[in-house]
Design a protein around this nucleic acid. Structure first.
Lengths: 338, 338
DNA sequence: ACAAGCCGTGGAATCGATTACACGAGAGAT
DNA sequence: ATCTCTCGTGTAATCGATTCCACGGCTTGT
């Protein structure tokens, strides 16, 4: 593979001049510029990003550590992150933690070893000592979706508070009183917040949230399945199961189907996160929708602000309720099943 | 950030010795080794992967260019690729082409600029000149899922031939005769093959596949929607629509629902690619399932074989038919809707 | 006792870029 | 005509690692 020296030789100039042309430094004669361009073309030369990074101490690369690639929510997030980063001249390296703190740390470490310019994280747990160190060390960093409390790092996320209130009000209006939730890990902020917001909304309607109606999940399908099985085996099972993310809703659906029960006649279901498939499940699922694209873009902008020395901004965007028919809504939507 | 020099100074040895300890070269005294380890620990030193790559001319990084991150099939593929790569000591940088050749080329170029050790590609088109150049230049490369004919590059893919035959036989047995297909782009091998296999299977059953029953899609949901709308507006619409990937099946479902029609009573549906949501759609979708995990792992193994100088192996794995109830199957599966 | 070999170690070259500094040539000022 | 300034260019240092080579001190064989 041709190096800058080959280009210099071919163009009959020094490597310094080649470098100046490549970086469009003003002080190069038109003639030299022309010859360098010709040589670059002739040799199919492409600058070695590794060498460049070593010298300039910047990689123009951002690291993104997401909790789970199989979760369409994070996939959508990753896509908008990559898009915005590309628009700003950065690439993105994605690390998938699979909701496991060790794997998250592994990725953070390799990303740092590669000297990425900044880190976007959606922490799988609430207190990764490594992440704390990294933050203290001054690495440009932004939290997306989830965050770690007590660190001075910008956070870009959606606020589900109001949407959860709306959801509970909606369920109450439909006549449901026994509402259960499949929570995310207590170690994640989103895990906690969604339960808390749910509990508060219940209280506002004078409803109790007994411990038996709080299933402990980990944001993965299997845990949703287990929690739902447990709900269904209760002497007084809930009328509605609210899953704190879309994968646990998938698991809940699996459990319900395995019992031969029907949604929403036997039990209703709702989910945090809206995904395209929720329109076509049997029945379509009432869900809380996050502005994923805007979240990803805002996170990249905040991170690049830090990297380039501008003051970053934390962003909180509202989530919204999307009513469908999985909670016994009377609906005339074409194609719904009853 | 501490460098190897700082470690050397702290340990009272030369950088050469530090490097030897780091790379577990045998010829270092136990005492020096101990002191270096202590210094590494004390300084929290981590080797700079950028510098190391420059010197050794290897990055221990693989590039993966996939056609669409929003497609659960590719997401699952990416996950298994990353997993296997990690097990073999490599990291993976994912580039998302969004089914757009220019974006694919952009990613290939940046990946190459970063001097990745090898490239895994699922080409968005059938003849990217860039990809051809890269292959000719001798960059270690493996095709996954899709490939470009006429280049001597290992291919790791699933063969849907037999599964499509089974599908058509299954549909025929159910009494269906008017079968339509939403094809992928003709520029992709998977796009072509699936239509060809379908056409052949139809012929084997003495069935015609009129042009009007071949919808041209691009593996994205919207095109599935448009093709299906067209099918439904035909004077003699098909009884079954077979989508060549899961996203186009999603689009087909959208179109059917928008018309207020019911699956499978009014029209049946089947898809290439099986995803977890197909169990819970209304009704559950009959699909062809690929061994995604094994595909990803085999692709990484083939690529690493090339990178490390061993002879690589092309791999073709069979896909299988998963019968559910979206084509009018009489079924007693609990929870199915009828 | 001396030659030969091995072992642990450090010095220095190297990878491919960027960039501070020096220098010579030509333009403009006085 | 001389001085100064600017402009285009090249030389060489530098980033942080790896690795070849040389060297001094021991062990081993004869």
């Amino acid at each position: 593979m041709a190096s800058i020296k080959d280009v210099a030789a071919q163009a009959g100039v020094s490597v310094a001049t080649v470098s100046r042309v490549l970086n469009s430094h003003p002080s190069v004669s038109p003639d030299a510029r022309r010859r360098v361009h010709a040589a670059v073309e002739a040799l199919g030369y492409r600058p070695n990003a590794v060498a460049r990074s070593l010298r300039t101490d910047q990689t123009r690369t951002l690291g993104l550590v997401i909790s789970d690639v199989l979760n369409p929510y994070f996939t959508a997030l990753a896509r908008s992150v990559e898009e915005e980063a590309r628009a700003l001249g950065y690439s993105v390296i994605i690390g998938n933690a699979d909701e496991r703190p060790e794997q998250q740390d592994h990725h953070v470490r390799t990303l740092l070893d590669r000297r990425i310019d900044g880190l976007l994280v959606s922490p799988a747990d609430g207190e990764s000592p490594l992440l704390l160190d990294v933050a203290r060390a001054g690495t440009p960093m932004v939290f997306v979706d989830r965050w770690i409390p007590g660190v001075d790092i910008p956070v870009v996320r959606a606020d589900g508070h109001r949407a959860i209130q709306e959801l509970v009000a909606h369920l109450y209006a439909l006549g449901h009183r026994r509402l259960a939730i499949i929570a995310g890990p207590a170690a994640t902020t989103t895990g906690n917040e969604r339960v808390e917001a749910f509990r508060e909304a219940m209280r506002a309607h004078g409803l109790a949230l007994p411990d038996a109606y709080i299933g402990q999940g980990d944001f993965q399908a299997d845990s949703g399945r287990r929690a739902t099985e447990h709900f269904l085996s209760l002497p007084d099972p809930p009328e509605i199961v609210f899953a704190a993310d879309n994968l646990m809703a998938l698991g809940a659906l699996d459990a319900i189907r395995a019992r031969g029960l029907r949604v929403p006649e036997d039990i209703g279901i709702a989910a945090f996160d809206d995904i395209p498939w929720f329109v076509h499940t049997g029945p379509p699922i009432t869900a809380i929708s996050q502005p994923t694209g805007e979240l990803g873009r805002a996170a990249v902008r905040a991170l690049v602000d830090i990297v380039e020395g501008r003051p970053p901004q934390s962003v909180t965007l509202p989530a919204g309720l999307v009513v469908r028919s999985s909670c016994g809504e009377r609906t005339s939507t074409p194609g719904s099943n009853e």
